[in-house]
């Protein structure tokens, strides 16, 4: 199975989750996604997702001048974005639980259980 295929469905939630923890610009978001284990994530997907989330009002954006290199377009989460994130979290948890039960492993449940506990 291909991780990129799985990623497509959950990239919105992933990006929203990353930005809910702190504003970031495009490449920063990519890095944080990759650092958290989603190594298959692609530039275009993330930029496209950011742009789309901004368009529907889930994200705000502002420009921060940079000493070296170009200005950076930062994204922050909006109330709508937070609402979307919580909805998608519920959907994902139900889905993941079902899948875990089907596949008969508890290995992947750990992160969600941690999050549930918070």
């Amino acid at each position: 199975m291909d991780a990129t295929q799985l990623l497509k469905g959950v990239l919105d939630a992933a990006v929203l989750a990353v930005i809910s923890k702190g504003d970031g610009y495009g490449y920063d978001v990519i890095k944080r996604l990759q650092d958290s284990g989603l190594t298959e994530v692609g530039d275009a997907s993330v930029y496209g997702t950011l742009r789309r989330l901004f368009t529907i009002g889930a994200l705000t954006s502002y420009v921060v001048p940079s000493e070296s290199g170009p200005h950076r377009k930062y994204y922050g989460i909006t109330p709508l974005g937070l609402q979307m994130l919580s909805e998608q979290r519920e959907v994902w948890q139900e889905f993941a639980s079902a899948m875990c039960a089907l596949l008969g492993t508890t290995h992947l449940i750990l992160p969600t259980q941690i999050e549930k506990g918070e």
Partner: peptide, 8 residues
């Protein structure tokens, strides 16, 4: 790249 933009 274009395909990624499409799918995203």
């Amino acid at each position: 790249y274009a395909n990624e933009l499409r799918t995203s």
